[in-house]
């Protein structure tokens, strides 16, 4: 009964959108043709069957992660650590920018403007080659510091917007009870602001996972760097980069969906 009720609507949907379906078919065809011609033009031989061992392998020691998944773990480590640090940098900077102290505002503003107006890759090199040796930071530490400084600058704008969005009356109520500025932030303002900015903050996490691929440039064996090595070792360029891209997508796409869903819920909750 249900299907009888829905099938005419489906047919109507097909008829109404036939041009869209045609376009969709053409698009898929074009992509297939592009890949096929690339394969023919370069005399490429697909060797997908050789790919799984670079992800996971069964040896006498049992299941062992292949280089790509080992790289993914490094990617997670860098992104995770950077995310925590970026949140700390971001929140501190936001509070500095909203402080009464001219110096604090200047420092925060200078940091944000410097980071936002120079390329991330330059920052990574700068920290690895200039700051790193001074403070004894290794490549991993440099990458984490560069990424967290970079994302922290963007996160600070998100935090600032969240804090500013909290009604003035909340400050006044807390102040009138004798709470200090610090306690007001900690107990009243930030808990409320966090709820509102959780979606964009989670977005920072997605960006971090993607941007962590730049750590490959300072010899960190994360996912992209591992992909680079495997592809030059095996010449399976297509398979390796398709796989690497798919792994990134498999992590970030669900995260992005989650962010979008959270955003929708927040809007209805407010």
């Amino acid at each position: 009964m249900n299907s009888r009720a829905t099938s005419p609507t489906f047919v109507r949907f097909l008829v109404a959108h036939y041009r869209d379906f045609l376009l969709y078919g053409l698009l898929l065809g074009a992509v297939a043709w592009f890949i096929a011609s690339g394969e023919q033009g370069t005399g490429y031989h697909w060797k997908w069957y050789r790919m799984p061992r670079y992800l996971i392998q069964f040896t006498e020691d049992g299941w062992v992660l292949g280089p790509l998944l080992q790289g993914l773990i490094v990617t997670f480590k860098i992104s995770g650590l950077s995310l925590i640090l970026a949140m700390i940098f971001g929140l501190t900077t936001a509070i500095f920018r909203l402080s009464d102290s001219f110096t604090a505002r200047l420092v925060a503003k200078g940091y944000v403007e410097f980071i936002r107006n120079t390329p991330l890759l330059t920052q990574i090199f700068f920290i690895y080659y200039v700051i790193g040796p001074v403070f004894g930071l290794d490549a991993f530490g440099s990458a984490v510091l560069a990424l967290s400084l970079f994302e922290g600058a963007y996160a600070s704008e998100i935090f600032r917007a969240g804090i500013v969005s909290i009604h003035k009356g909340q400050w006044e109520a807390a102040y009138s009870l004798g709470l200090s500025r610090q306690d007001t932030y900690r107990r009243v303002i930030i808990p409320q602001a966090l709820r509102r900015i959780l979606p964009p903050l989670a977005g920072v996490g997605v960006t971090l996972i993607k941007d962590s691929s730049l750590a490959s440039t300072i010899a960190i064996y994360e996912l992209t760097q591992r992909g680079n090595i495997v592809s030059s070792d095996t010449f399976m360029v297509f398979e390796v980069w398709f796989t690497v891209a798919a792994i990134y997508l498999a992590i970030t796409f669900p995260l992005s969906l989650l962010v979008a869903e959270m955003g929708k819920r927040m809007r209805t909750a407010d």
Binding site: H167, G169, Q170, E172, A173, A174, S176, L177, G178, L179, D183, R187, V188, P191, Q192, R195
Partner: peptide
């Protein structure tokens, strides 16, 4: 001080609202 728009802390229960300054201050 009591405000026109109440200014209760929306993320806390009535109990927590009243507890906050007693504990904190």
């Amino acid at each position: 001080m009591v405000f026109q728009s109440f200014n209760l802390f929306p993320h806390m229960t009535a109990l927590q609202n009243i507890n906050l300054a007693q504990e904190q201050v």
